[in-house]
Design a protein around this nucleic acid. Structure first.
Length: 579
DNA sequence: CAACGAATAT
DNA sequence: CATATTCGTT
């Protein structure tokens, strides 16, 4: 049946089904589908798409995002065909055999839609989330169970990947340190760092994505975020919070594990003093995270690992971003001492341990206790680049940042690929996150991260960077840059801690722009969503550096390669670990 | 039979 | 790639 070939451009090559042909034909005829401009577009698509819709939207853009902003995402285009009488008329007749009419337009999982989806999933709990229920919760008109199932499949895949990465990194970390990062550690230092970390992590993990996503998704969110953005750190956390709240508010809360509730989050928010809403979110998130973390040593480890992994993981740029943010965030948290008290040492220990391990490895300078979270990164960088670079004076080199960022950015482009690279750990089976025992952690982490990351399709890549050091040789240079950048970031972080956001903003003006770019990533298709960029840029400014670094690093490592494996110190890992 | 979820097709 | 559809299970 199929063998026919299409005339239209693309189609020429592809064999088309009769049905398809038919549909196309119908469209053409009925709709007077004119070949003109769009002609090139896939006819196929035309067929699928609802005519009206098409007309309205221009291809790519329309896709998803733009709609959301407009208000309603394109959920489904339902009517398209049906309405169109095209098929409809003959409809009855066709019903049976004629698929044409029936053909529904493909569901475009706009941010909005996805948001709903995620929310639903969160509400249900990842384990219980089945298409039918999700569909119910989503309560979207034309969505079908199949649609949801399909999306769920993808989503799960995503989570899995995410977890895999995280686990991997964790393992790596362990390997690197040799010591269990999580298990022990200096309690105290760790505390602050930890808390910071935790909160940051929590926030970051969730937020970052949220940011990216949310902005696109929720216009409202945007505005909010922006508002907060003013303060870098706070902003960051706030943003995150915001995003979440906006987007997922419901979701994340889900169930917090029975564990103690973490105060960390609170501490953060408090310090930040952001809007109630935000705080709320933050708290919640933080709580979740903290809870999770604190809940189990493992969990903690897992968290950190996860976070790290996320950050470091090449997979998602967003993730990277998040990570970055996390770090940033962490600092603020650090500021808040009160929080720490509540948390179990273990958690703290964990974080600290991470840091320590990283630090220890690096000979580089320890920024300061608090920066710990960042430190690791630092260290990692050094390590990775390491061999050659050796002790960098890293800490302060703000100047370069812009360059660094650029690099990072470019890198990112390449980076996108990594994700595939990741291996799934054996454990993977466990739902999605394997690490240690914190189920809650798992969930949350997975959820949040997933949410955010999930959609994001980063487009970073768009920026072709001639500059990119694709080669190993470049690697060194890169490293240096990074290190510098990293150092910068760390510095920033530090400053931030001590000072506040202002510093940050100052420090990384350019970053913003880069960031923006990164921001684009979120919604590749929806240029319209762009609104995000501004905010993001602001928000992320602090994080930007990180992202850039991370990304670049990651990418470099990846691209450059192979080294990673050997020592385990591979840049890649180191990053992950440190980060 | 309905719903799932993985696999596969488009 | 992102979705849709198919297919084998439960």
């Amino acid at each position: 049946m199929k063998g026919i070939t299409h005339g239209a451009c693309d189609y020429l090559l592809k064999p088309v089904r009769i049905e398809e042909l038919r549909n196309i034909w119908q469209h053409v005829v009925r709709r007077k589908f004119s070949i003109r401009d769009r002609a090139n577009l896939d006819i196929y698509e035309e067929c699928n798409k609802p005519p009206d819709v098409d007309s309205d939207h221009v291809h790519g853009h329309t896709t998803c995002g733009s709609p959301d902003q407009s208000g309603r995402p394109i959920r489904k285009r339902k009517e398209c065909c049906s309405e169109e009488e095209d098929e409809g008329e003959e409809g009855n007749t066709q019903e049976i055999d004629d698929p044409s009419a029936p053909k529904r337009p493909r569901v475009v999982w706009s941010v909005e839609l996805h948001r709903k989806f995620v929310t639903a999933v969160n509400q249900l709990g990842i384990d219980k989330a089945v298409p039918k229920r999700i569909l119910e919760l989503m309560n979207v008109e034309k969505l079908t169970r199949e649609n949801v199932a399909s999306h769920l499949q993808k989503y799960r895949l995503y989570l899995k990947r995410l977890s895999a990465v995280a686990s991997q990194q964790v393992s790596v970390v362990a390997a690197l340190g040799g010591r269990d990062p999580f298990l022990h550690m200096g309690a105290f230092e760790g505390l602050q760092g930890y808390q910071a970390f935790t909160s940051a992590a929590a926030l970051s993990s969730f937020t970052p994505h949220g940011l990216l996503n949310s902005p696109g998704n929720n216009p409202g969110a945007f505005g909010t975020q922006q508002v907060y953005a003013s303060k870098s750190i706070q902003t960051v956390s706030g943003n995150h919070t915001f995003n979440h709240s906006i987007c997922d508010a419901n979701k994340y809360h889900l169930r917090s594990p029975g564990n103690q509730q973490g105060n960390l989050g609170q501490g953060l928010p408090t310090s930040l003093g952001q809007t109630q809403m935000q705080q709320k979110w933050i708290h919640e998130e933080a709580d979740d995270l903290s809870t999770i973390l604190s809940g189990n040593g493992l969990a903690n480890g897992g968290m950190s690992a996860t976070l790290q992994s996320v950050t470091s993981s090449p997979l998602l740029p967003q993730e990277l971003v998040e990570c970055t943010q996390v770090k940033i965030a962490s600092q603020p948290s650090i500021l808040t001492p009160s929080v720490s008290s509540e948390h179990p040492e273990g958690s703290v220990g964990v974080s600290s341990s991470l840091l320590d391990s990283c630090v220890s490895q690096q000979s580089t300078i320890p920024l300061s206790g608090f920066s710990a979270s960042e430190l690791p990164i630092h260290a990692s960088f050094h390590n990775s680049c390491a061999s050659g670079l050796g002790g960098t004076s890293s800490v302060s080199t703000p100047a370069h940042r812009s360059n660094d960022l650029m690099v990072a950015r470019d890198t990112k482009a390449g980076a996108s690929s990594f994700g595939s690279t990741i291996l799934l750990p054996p454990d993977t089976e466990q739902k999605y996150l394997n690490f240690g025992g914190g189920n809650s952690f798992k969930q949350k982490l997975s959820e949040r991260i997933a949410d955010n990351v999930f959609n994001s399709k980063f487009v970073w890549s768009s920026a072709p960077s001639s500059q990119l050091p694709s080669n190993i040789g470049a690697h060194h240079s890169m490293c240096q840059r990074w290190s510098s950048s990293s150092s910068n970031s760390s510095n920033i972080g530090v400053r931030m801690i001590g000072q506040t956001s202002s510093t940050v903003s100052t420090a990384a003006p350019q970053m913003k722009s880069d960031f923006l770019i990164a921001g684009d990533m979120l919604m590749p298709k929806n240029a319209s969503d762009l609104s995000i960029p501004k905010l993001q840029s602001e928000l992320s400014s602090s994080s930007c550096s990180f992202d850039g670094l991370l990304n670049s690093i990651i990418k470099v490592e990846k691209d450059d390669v192979s080294f990673n494996n050997d020592l385990g110190c591979g840049d890649f890992y180191s990053l992950g670990a440190c980060i």
